[in-house]
Write a protein that binds this DNA or RNA. Structure first.
Lengths: 129, 129
DNA sequence: ATCGACGGTAACCACTGGATACCGAGTACT
DNA sequence: AGTACTCGGTATCCAGTGGTTACCGTCGAT
């Protein structure tokens, strides 16, 4: 009586990412976030300041970046460090959990880089035909 | 005058995913899409019909699913096959490109499944504190 | 003649991402 | 002394996308 009563239309494969009621969906939502992936990539080398992130991301609205960072911090992916200085200094850094996310994210990024041309070609063909 | 004048705040790492002007961003947008990842996962085993997808995804709005599938087809990730039957039958299937996306996506999905508990814990701790 | 299956489209709403303006503390400049 | 500037945001408003519900077209079964 553990996970026997799967009564949906389709057989649910091993990973329950596909189960709408599973919290893994929340994780996918986070990763599906427009900026989270990029932020992880940017924090690879170490702590980065708010404005540096903003610049590197190419002009995200500050509100949105704040939202993203807050959500990531809440989920334990990054830590936020405030320095009692003026002008203010705040840095963000990957936690261990955040670092563990690097590998999968980099896999996706690498795929993206390798296959952009194919995708662009398909897109052109679609709009041309 | 090739790529020597990196004059941003931050050093831009090898992958130009971080370059806002690079089409890789488009790819990330596609992957960042709420449903694309799930669709790829669902199409692993072979062609699947529209309604089956819809059911398995747990009640996506048909409009949104159509949008997602159209975008994926346009980008060469899946093919759409219409059968001249009644009632209508349409199946979607991963292309070779789509299959190549499986590995990175499954890496992310696996990570999600392994780390949901940690994330949920962090989230609880955040809301409790 | 009507209903139902399937794969959508049409019209409408809500929420989130985005752009812009502004703030507050302190320091350097004039 | 007054002003401008830095940094890390918040406040306000707008747009675009995801989401919901209703409906369509075809044809076989009832």
């Amino acid at each position: 009586m553990v996970t026997n009563e799967v009564s949906t239309d389709i057989a649910i494969p091993d990973p329950d990412v596909l189960n709408p009621n599973c919290p893994t969906r929340l994780v996918l939502d986070r990763i599906g976030d427009r900026w989270t992936v990029l932020v992880v990539l940017l924090l690879r080398e170490g702590p980065v300041r708010f404005t540096a992130l903003r610049t590197a991301l190419g002009g995200v609205a500050p509100k949105v970046l704040t939202q993203t960072l807050k959500a990531m911090a809440r989920d334990g992916l990054i830590t936020r460090t405030v320095y009692a200085e003026v002008p203010p200094k705040v840095t963000y850094e990957l936690t261990e959990l955040g670092h563990s996310l690097r590998a999968p994210i980099e896999a996706v990024a690498t795929w993206a880089e390798s296959n952009v041309s194919a995708i662009m070609a398909a897109r052109e063909a679609a709009s041309a035909g």
